[in-house]
C-alpha cells in the first residue's frame, strides 16, 4: 500500500533519452536478474502447479503415467457429488461464522488497546500470541478445553447451571462452532494489529471536532472511526474471506473433518481426493471450483467497495 501512494520526487522524472541503448538494456537486464530468483521460485512452485490444476481438472490422472483427457466428466461428477455439497456447505458455514466474529473481535481488541493503559505492550503481545503459536499445539489444547466430560469449558458450563452442555468437537452439531471459535481466537491478534495501524492513521482533529459538536462515544465511533477505517476494514475483509474459504490445517488437526462429515471443508476434500485417494483430476476439479468461488466473492467485494468509495 505504502509503495503505490509514495510521494513522487519533486521534479517530474526525466524522460529517458535513448542516447545509450546499451545502458538501457543493461539496466533492464539488471532489473530482471534481481527479480529472477524470486520469480523462478514462484513460477516453478506456484504458477506452474496452479496452471496445471486448470488442465488436470479435465483429466483422469493417478500420478502415474499420463493424464487422460475426460472433458467435463469431473465437473459433472462434482455437481452430483454429495461430499462436495457437504464440504461446500461446511466451508460457507465456517466463513459466515469466522469472518464477522474475527472482525468484531479484532476490532474490539484494537479499540481497547489503542489507548494509553498500563501494560499496553503486554496486552498487545498477549493478543498476538495465538497467531504465532503452532497450530498443532493450539488444536491439542483447545481439544482438551472442549473435552465433553473433563474439559474446563463444560465444567464451567455445568457449574453455572447448564445441565446438558454441548459435546463440542465430538458432537456433529457443535463441532463447527467449536472450530470457528478456535479459529477466531487464533486469528484475531493478527487482524488486531492491522486495525491498530488503521486506527493510528485517523487524525485526532476529527475526534476533537466531533466532540465539540457534542457527539457521544458511540456517535464518534459510528461516524468517525468506522468511515476512516474503511480501507483497513476492506483489506481485512478480503484477507479473512479468502483465509476462511481455504481453511485446512486447523480443521485437519482438530477434527479431521469429523465427527462424520460435520466439519469436512473444501480444501480438505481436495487433499483427500488427490493426495490420499490418488484422483488428481477430480481433486483439481474441486480446487478449480474453490478458486472460482473465492474469485467471484472477492470480485463482488471489490465492486461493493468501489461503489462505497464514490
Amino acid at each position: 500500500m505504502a509503495t503505490t501512494t509514495a510521494a513522487r520526487p519533486a521534479p517530474a522524472p526525466r524522460r529517458p533519452t535513448y542516447v545509450n541503448r546499451r545502458q538501457v538494456r543493461r539496466n533492464t537486464l539488471l532489473g530482471w536478474t534481481f527479480i529472477l530468483p524470486n520469480f523462478a521460485g514462484f513460477a516453478l512452485l506456484t504458477l506452474v502447479p496452479v496452471v496445471a490444476t486448470f488442465g488436470l481438472a479435465f483429466t483422469r490422472w493417478n500420478a502415474f503415467g499420463t493424464p487422460e483427457f475426460t472433458g467435463l466428466t469431473n465437473l459433472q461428477r462434482l455437481v452430483g457429488d454429495e461430499n462436495f455439497r457437504v464440504a461446500l456447505g461446511n466451508t460457507v458455514y465456517y466463513t459466515v461464522g469466522h469472518v464477522p466474529l474475527t472482525m468484531a473481535a479484532s476490532l474490539g481488541l484494537a479499540l481497547a488497546l489503542n489507548r494509553k493503559i498500563r501494560g499496553l505492550a503486554f496486552f498487545r503481545t498477549a493478543a498476538f500470541f495465538p497467531y504465532i503459536t503452532s497450530i498443532v499445539a493450539v488444536a491439542v489444547v483447545w481439544n482438551m478445553l472442549y473435552n465433553p466430560t473433563r474439559g474446563p469449558i463444560n465444567q464451567l458450563l455445568t457449574t453455572i447451571g447448564i445441565s446438558d452442555p454441548p459435546g463440542w468437537t465430538s458432537d456433529p452439531t457443535w463441532a463447527m462452532p467449536a472450530v470457528i471459535l478456535t479459529g477466531v481466537w487464533k486469528d484475531m491478534g493478527y487482524y488486531m494489529i492491522l486495525f491498530l495501524a488503521g486506527l493510528q492513521t485517523i487524525p485526532p482533529e476529527l475526534y476533537e471536532a466531533a466532540k465539540t459538536d457534542g457527539a457521544n462515544a458511540w456517535q464518534r465511533f459510528r461516524n468517525v472511526t468506522l468511515p476512516c477505517l474503511r480501507p483497513t476494514t476492506f483489506f481485512v475483509l478480503i484477507m479473512l474471506t479468502i483465509g476462511s474459504f481455504k481453511v485446512f490445517d486447523l480443521i485437519v488437526v482438530m477434527t479431521n473433518g469429523g465427527p462424520g462429515r460435520s466439519t469436512l471443508v473444501l480444501s480438505q476434500l481436495i487433499y483427500r481426493e488427490g493426495i490420499v485417494n490418488g484422483q488428481f483430476g477430480y481433486s483439481s476439479a474441486v480446487a478449480l471450483a474453490l478458486f472460482v468461488l473465492v474469485l467471484v466473492i472477492t470480485l463482488l467485494q471489490y465492486a461493493r467497495n468501489q461503489r462505497l468509495e464514490k
Binding site: 491439542v140 481439544n143 482438551m144 472442549y146 473435552n147 465433553p148 466430560t149 473433563r150 459435546g167 463440542w168 468437537t169 465430538s170 458432537d171 469429523g258 465427527p259
Partner: peptide, 10 residues
C-alpha cells in the same frame, strides 16, 4: 473409555 474422549484427546 468413551469414544468422544478417546478420539478428541487422541
Amino acid at each position: 473409555l468413551d469414544y468422544s474422549t478417546a478420539s478428541t484427546q487422541k
